[in-house]
Design a protein around this nucleic acid. Structure first.
Length: 683
DNA sequence: GTTAGGG
DNA sequence: CCCTAAC
């Protein structure tokens, strides 16, 4: 008993980072509404951005550069309706950034929810070009000619979008984060897997929301809205210290989306981009298409996919889930929202005292860029933590083809496949600091200069396709863009207007995404990124806009088109290698502690005792780790790599190893003796 | 399902 | 980390 207690004590020392999750009950309760005509997701007309930029420019200047405060997003709910508007006009009305994401693609209990309920009409016709999110189309140009989806037809050429704000910010000038959600009402399969696409529109709505704003807004006080596309801080109303747990976009249900992640949100700063830049983005956005070959028959395959998913290792599944939750897909971008607050709590499990030195930045999004906001906060600990909030990434639009005769449900599934394909293609994350890619995954944040005092404003993350080479003919060319980095105009122009992505069996979609989006380590491992793209040539190259916190990788169609390759791959099925997750010192300590007590032959027990909550650590992992630890401890410290393990721990490792080796030897000897005795007795 | 050990 | 032989 004593032993047990001791052990438990030791274990408690290591708390596996808990991935915040909304209570199941909450997640379950998502009413599912039907949105026949609003089929997939909607697309926010980036056009509107122009105006916003201008507006934000003026208002932002005052607060530029300074941390604006925290939490609070204006809760503007919006629904998009069909309504047509001209681009230019839209431009003048405001801007919106949309993104759709699949919150719980993996979560079976998820129900779809249609957020819109009591829409208010906005005066301005903030033009939201509707489109099934993932169904790529030239939303910006309002050219739907290429969309060959039944559903899309509905929202066809004349489609207009109207923003309706429900319970918006009292501060009319505040940009609002408008989130539009909708989902399929049908379950994807027996497992009740459902896909939900939602469009989050971050809109700066000045005139727009003006009228129908319901002051009941969740943003009672400090509200800050973020304009994903801009850099400068946009002062929003008052910023108080109170940290309300403001919900984003949706009320109750919002928690279902961000619940765990966003129990509180923080204010980010934004800088307006130039009009020109905007145009450029716009242009760029309209230039790519994804085509997803409809494979409706594969629906069954999807089932099996999900079934398999179900059998996935916990950590893998979790990764997928997390990613799904955090990626807001839209045809041009998806956002990864990560609540630093929540993460902090989940990580440290300790109540935070005051938060000082909060640095929050969010920089302009270069074309194809990711909106990232990062903050560093001093936890008043020896080991200050750096938290990053990656607001959004951009992904290429998807192009889907679905026969007109297909059902909406089919369309949704197809979209689901497409999205899953992206996830499954094995995205990689890159880190760009001061314009240069940080490739050494083993360096600490401190070493690379990412600290509360440093370089956060020059920090960027990139999303890169897991594969650079497109083996099949799917690849238009081998001019696969360099993985990360700022996309230059040249690059843009160089990209083919569209690429075809043929989706294959869903089975290939089951790869857990490789991004580290769910990295919630307590060890400052947030930056521990996946290996950079092997073919990446932009490595260590200066990135044009080093200021951009978010640099988006050319996660383009070509690169992503590689997904189908998997189908041909024999090993494609769920054989994706797990992402590397280096043991933290804390984990090592817990491991050592456990092994000291239990010995080296009871990994199951070690796992149960010390890592029971660490789903991503199997007992085999622990065993392997111990193996490497023993090795590490026996070599010169010079030869050791990765996060240095305290010599003290290594000593314990050797000691324990020696002890248990001997112990084991004794056991064996004893057994042998016993056996002999037995034999002798027998004979 | 666990262990142990090579890859 | 993966894979597998051997419990």
């Amino acid at each position: 008993m004593v032993l047990k207690k001791r052990l438990n004590f030791g274990f408690s020392g290591y708390q596996i980072p808990v991935i915040p999750k909304a209570p199941r009950s909450a997640r379950k309760r998502r009413p599912c509404k039907k949105l026949d005509d609003q089929i997939c997701a909607f697309e926010l007309l980036a056009a509107v951005a122009g105006k916003l930029l201008l507006e934000s420019e003026s208002s932002a200047s005052s607060n530029a550069g300074a941390p604006v405060g925290k939490d609070e997003f204006a809760d503007c709910r919006a629904t998009i309706k069909r309504e047509q508007m001209e681009d230019d006009k839209a431009l003048d009305q405001g801007s919106c950034v949309e993104s759709a994401y699949i919150p719980e693609a993996a979560d079976q209990e998820q129900n779809f929810k249609n957020v819109s309920s009591k829409p208010y009409h906005t005066e301005n016709k903030s033009f939201l070009e509707s489109a099934s999110t993932i169904i790529g189309s030239n939303s910006l140009t309002n050219d739907w000619s290429e969309v060959k989806t039944e559903s899309c037809k509905e929202v066809n050429a004349d489609a207009k979008l109207q923003i309706k704000v429900e319970g918006g910010s009292p501060y009319l000038d505040d940009p609002c984060d408008i989130r539009i959600m909708e989902g399929t009402q049908k379950q994807l399969d027996d497992d009740s897997k459902q896909t939900e696409l939602s469009v989050a529109n971050a809109c700066s709505v000045k005139a727009p929301i003006e009228k129908n704003v319901n002051n009941s807004a969740l943003i009672n006080s400090d509200s800050s809205v973020q304009l994903p596309l801009y850099r400068d801080p946009i002062p929003c109303a008052s910023f108080v210290k109170s940290r309300n747990h403001v919900k984003l976009g949706v009320r109750d249900d919002d928690d279902n989306y961000f619940g765990g992640y966003r129990r509180s949100t923080k204010i980010r700063t934004f800088k307006p981009t130039s009009h020109i830049a905007y145009r450029r983005i716009r242009k760029m956005l309209t230039s790519r298409h994804w085509k997803v070959a409809p494979k409706l028959k594969d629906y069954d395959g999807m089932k099996s996919f999900y079934r398999k998913r179900k059998n996935m290792r916990g950590d893998e599944r979790r990764r997928l889930e997390i990613l799904s939750k955090r990626m807001k897909f839209c045809h041009h971008s998806f956002a990864v929202a990560y609540d630093q607050e929540a993460s902090c709590e989940s990580i440290s499990n300790k109540p935070e005292k005051g938060i000082k030195g909060d640095i929050i930045t969010s920089l302009a999004v270069p074309p194809k860029g990711a909106v990232v906001s990062a903050s560093v906060r001093n936890h008043h600990q020896k080991d200050p933590k750096v938290k990053f909030s990656i607001k959004s990434f951009k992904v290429p639009e998807l192009y889907i083809e679905v026969p007109e005769t297909e059902t909406v449900g089919s369309l949704k599934r197809t979209v689901m496949e497409a999205v899953t394909a992206i996830l499954g293609s094995g995205l990689r994350v890159g880190v760009v600091l001061q314009g240069k890619k940080v490739r050494d995954d083993n360096r600490t944040l401190q070493q690379v200069g990412i600290s509360q005092n440093g370089n956060l404003d020059t920090l960027g993350f990139t999303l890169e396709p897991g594969f650079t080479k497109v083996p099949l003919s799917l690849s238009p060319k081998d001019d696969t863009p360099a993985s990360a980095s700022y996309i230059t105009d040249q690059e843009l122009s160089r990209h083919p207007p569209s690429a075809i992505l043929g989706l294959g069996p869903p089975s290939a979609l089951s790869y857990p995404p490789k991004t580290k989006l769910d990295k919630h380590d307590e060890n400052n491992h947030e930056l521990e990124m996946l290996p950079m793209n092997p073919i990446d040539q932009s490595a260590d190259e200066a990135v044009p806009d080093s200021k951009a916190l978010a640099v988006v990788p050319p996660v383009n169609a070509e690169a992503l088109a590689v997904v189908p390759v998997y189908h041909k791959n024999k090993h494609s099925e769920l054989s994706q290698r797990r992402t590397r997750r280096p043991f933290s010192v804390a984990e090592v300590e817990a491991l050592v502690e456990a092994v000291e007590q239990l010995g080296t032959g009871r990994w199951r027990d070690v796992k149960t005792r010390a890592f029971d909550n660490a789903d991503h650590r199997t007992y085999v992992d622990l065993k392997d780790k111990w193996k490497t630890l023993v090795h590490t401890a026996s070599i010169a410290s010079q030869q050791r790599r990765g996060e240095p393990v305290p010599q003290e721990l290594l000593d314990r490792v050797l000691a324990a190893h020696a002890y248990w080796s001997q112990h084991q030897a004794k056991q064996h000897a004893k057994q042998l003796v016993d056996a002999r005795v037995q034999n002798n007795v027998a004979t």
